[in-house]
Structure formats: structure tokens, C-alpha cells
Design a protein around this nucleic acid. Sequence first.
DNA 1: TAATCATTTCGATTTTTACAGAAATTACGA
DNA 2: TCGTAATTTCTGTAAAAATCGAAATGATTA
Lengths: 179, 179
Amino acid sequence: MGVEKYPEALEFILHWGEMGTHWGANRSVAQVHALLYLSDQPLDAEAICEALDLARSNVSTALKELQGYGIVRRTHIPGDRRDHFTAETELWDLFMAITAERKRREIDPTIAKLGELKDRMAANKDLPAHVRERIGRMHEFIANLTGWYEQVRGLKKSTLIALMKLGAKVARFIPGSKD
Amino acid sequence: MGVEKYPEALEFILHWGEMGTHWGANRSVAQVHALLYLSDQPLDAEAICEALDLARSNVSTALKELQGYGIVRRTHIPGDRRDHFTAETELWDLFMAITAERKRREIDPTIAKLGELKDRMAANKDLPAHVRERIGRMHEFIANLTGWYEQVRGLKKSTLIALMKLGAKVARFIPGSKD
DNA sequence: TAATCATTTCGATTTTTACAGAAATTACGA
DNA sequence: TCGTAATTTCTGTAAAAATCGAAATGATTA
């Protein structure tokens, strides 16, 4: 029996769908993800359609999107011609995959644009100084934040988890931080 | 003269507007924010309308939204009846305000929902174990991440900046991390 | 307190996005 | 290689969100 028949599971799927619309996905994509996340066996597209009452084409698009994020993968079931799909269940990996892809789609283009503007501003002499300064600072800020993210994301999972557990106590290692 | 007349400033505003639509705001909100961010003087609503070619009502709504995020404030100009508005220019504060508000709107309700489901699942004996387990782990994961965020966000700005500069080198303080 | 100016709220319109269903393509097996 | 099953792409429609303009509300000062 499909997990969507259990009220708590269904509510999870519906809530995930709603939140997904605020997190840069659409309802269908988030619902499909939630269903696969709760399922302990790979599901084929048709089963997803029936569970969520979505059109086949819609599910196809959603699956492609989720695979683009790297959080759903195709798995082959021997003796079955249809594709089956499984979601990432390791939440740390899920989180990392989503942040990486969102950065790529939403942050990188902005850094590139601001970099381009910075170059052009250098040549434009009658641009007010404060405009140059503010666009420049924004570029620097986002680039710094992103650079930090790239470094930290490269750390071992166990290190990251240890850092999380440390919480605000990391401040101890910053000389003179006192907070 | 309004900054929007300078091509680089205008491009910044337009790009910010487009990206805003991916970041949970609408185009108008993000454009108004960008304009105010680049302006070195407070602007009144009418000036914003003209600069961005937006309806007065639309600008009113956008300003309310930005004030809700705590990244735009009303400033009074002596001898002028109209409200004037200024954007946060300290980028660290801007970033902190946005993350705090998005957490409040988008994460907290999910934690609450998952907590509620967890309670109900405890009572529902015929729910498959793996469903209980996965919803429970999701709740725990998001709550942990959020708890970490709350702790770190409470640190002094100078401490946070020092931690950023440290980058991946924080790992040194985790015994046996070796990465 | 009346008149004017500023702001917000509301309803209508436009634009954008999501979604369904049909058509086309691809993969597979007989 | 032909036929069938599976998947994707395309096109139109429906739903949702953004935006406008008008009307209502609120504020200021003459």
C-alpha cells in the first residue's frame, strides 16, 4: 500500500508541497519529492500519478527537475521496463545537494553580473562614487559569503556535524571574541 | 538626479528585480529595495514610482513588505509631509534581517508541523516504522540546523566575520577532523 | 473644520506559472 | 523491423500572483 494512505504521511506530503512553493520549487515537484522520501521502495511514474493525482506529464517534469537537483535517482527494477525512482534519504546529502544547486542557479549569475558591472563602472567616470561603492560592496559581500560556503561545504560530513554540535561555542577559537 | 539614470545602476536594479522573484519576493519589491540601496538620500514614494515606472499602490505595498523584513525604514525629512524611505546599507545586517525573516516565515511553520506529526505518529500504531522514522529524522534535522543558526546568529558581528575569514580552517578545532 | 495632500485598501486586469491532455518520440521486445 | 509500452515534449487552459487604477481612509495645515 502506498504511504500516502496514512494520514500523517499525506499531511507531510501536502505540507511539503506548500512549502516547496516558497522554496523555489512548485507544488508538484515538492510533493513528488516528499512521496519518494517517505517511500521505502522505488516508485514508477504511474504509481506517483495515482498516489498524488497528478498528470503523467507533470510527474515526468517533476522527476526531471528533482534529478537535476541530484536528490532523486532512477533505479532499475529487474524484469520491469518502467523507470523507477528513489529519493535521497540521507538528509545531510539532501541539504547539500539543494544548496549547491540553488547557489548555481540563483547566486552565481548574480556574482557574474555584479562583476561585470564593477568592470564597467571602473571605466565610467561620471558615475557617482556612492553607486560604485555600493555595487562593489554588494559584489564583494556575496562573493565572500559564497567563498566561505564553498570552503565549508568541502569539509567532511563528520567535521560539519561536529561544528554544528559546537554551535556558538566555535567563538571560543576566535581570539578576543568574548561571546 | 536619480541613480536609475546611470546605466550600471539601472542594470543593477533590473537584475535585482529578476533575482528577487527567485528569492521569495516579487519584482517590484526587489526593485524598490535596489533603488533605495543605491540611493544616498531618502526617497519618497512618488520619486520611487517615477524612477521605476510602477503604480503608486504597488510601491506602497512593496515598501510595507520591505519594512516587514526590517531592511527599509521610514525617515522624516523636516518640512516635508511625505514619508521618505532608506534602505539598510550595512550588508551584514541586511543579510541577517532577511535570513531571520525567511526563517520565521518558511522554516518555523514547518518545524511546528513536523513536531505535530511526530506527536500524532507516536499514537498511531499501524503506521509503518519507516514513515515514522523519516518524518522524525526530517524534523530533527531541520530543528538542529535551525538551532545552530540561532546560536551563531547571536554571535558578535566581528566574531562572525572572523569565522568567515577562517573558512575551512575552522576544521582545525575539531579533533581528528583532518580535512 | 474644511480643503488638500499623502497613503492604503480594494477590485479589476494583466502577467506569469502550473498543470492537464494530446501528440510525438524513444526504448524495448517479439 | 514492426508493434507496443513508456516517456517526453508541446500546446492550450486553468490557477495563481503581480500590478494597476480607483476609491476610501488618514493626516496635515490653513
